[in-house]
């Protein structure tokens, strides 16, 4: 129990929860990194997960995305009632999951627009909808670039190769707009961005909010949370959520740090 703060016991799974993570344990190369994590995110809400380096934030996002190096050692995760962990990574996307990565991978020689069309068509196919030709997709992409406030030249770029760290993050936001997930987990999307880019990304995230969509922001810093107001903030320490609270928690963490949670 943390002194001086009101602990909020997790109310447990509710039917309206879009994401339900229950007692999740994840190991990487034999080390347990996520260790009994429980989290519920109702539809329409924005939640933030904050925590010190090494607390398991990125491990959580990669495990939920289905990265093969992250082994599930226990617990469960469901998206809209469907067992995420039983699905292949691409099936999770078709089920409505999107994870924006902290370090998006470079795939040289693959054109960004062509990649986005592949991703778009893969989802359309999974949903039993007709796929789009390059010609049909061009105006769709132009619209999404505008909505995501991504630079216009992104269609012609390579997939992350040759993009700066900040540009890659903005490309992740664009991908989110193209894939239209029910749940977007954005891992440190604010890191590596200058202040103007953070503002643009924040507008992109805010514009994505809808009653049937949820967003989980994983972040170190309070700055993004000033621009995207979360409904809930969770503190992740040593692989589990040790505290949850309202948006006011961000300022307090900024001022006081995670020390008191780590000691607890």
């Amino acid at each position: 129990m943390v002194i001086g703060m009101t602990a909020t016991p997790d109310p447990g799974p509710r039917t309206s929860d879009l994401l339900q993570v229950t007692d999740l344990k994840v190991t990487v190369a034999g080390l347990t990194i996520v260790d009994g994590l429980t989290l519920s995110v109702p539809a329409g809400e924005v939640h933030a997960i904050m925590g010190p380096n090494g607390s398991g934030k990125s491990t959580l996002s990669k495990a939920l995305a289905g990265h093969p190096a992250y082994a599930i050692a226990g617990g469960g995760a469901a998206l809209d009632g469907k067992d995420l962990l039983a699905m292949e990574p691409d099936e999770r996307v078709h089920a409505g999951l999107f994870v924006g990565f902290q370090y998006p991978t470079e795939v040289p020689g693959v054109n960004n627009a062509e990649f986005l069309r592949m991703a778009w068509n893969a989802r359309r196919k999974a949903l039993g909808q007709p796929e789009a030709t390059a010609k049909e997709f061009a105006p769709i992409l132009a619209e999404r670039i505008r909505q995501a406030e991504a630079p216009e030249d992104y269609a012609g770029r390579q997939l992350n190769a040759g993009l700066s760290g900040g540009q890659k993050k903005r490309n992740e936001i664009l991908q989110m707009y193209v894939l239209e997930p029910r749940l977007a987990i954005l891992d440190e999307t604010d890191s590596g961005l200058d202040i103007d880019a953070i503002k643009a990304v924040a507008r992109g995230i805010n514009g994505f909010r809808r009653p049937d969509r949820s967003i989980v922001l994983i972040t170190h810093f309070q700055r993004l949370l000033e621009l995207v107001k979360p409904d809930r903030i969770h503190v992740l320490v040593k692989g589990r959520i040790v505290h949850s609270g309202g948006p006011e928690l961000a300022e307090r963490l900024e001022a006081e740090g995670y020390d008191r949670f780590e000691r607890a």
């Binding site: 292949e88 691409d90 996307v93 795939v107 991703a119 893969a122 989802r123």
Partner: peptide, 10 residues
Amino acid sequence: FYLQARGIGH
């Protein structure tokens, strides 16, 4: 993994 995490099959 990155491409699969965007819904593209193996």
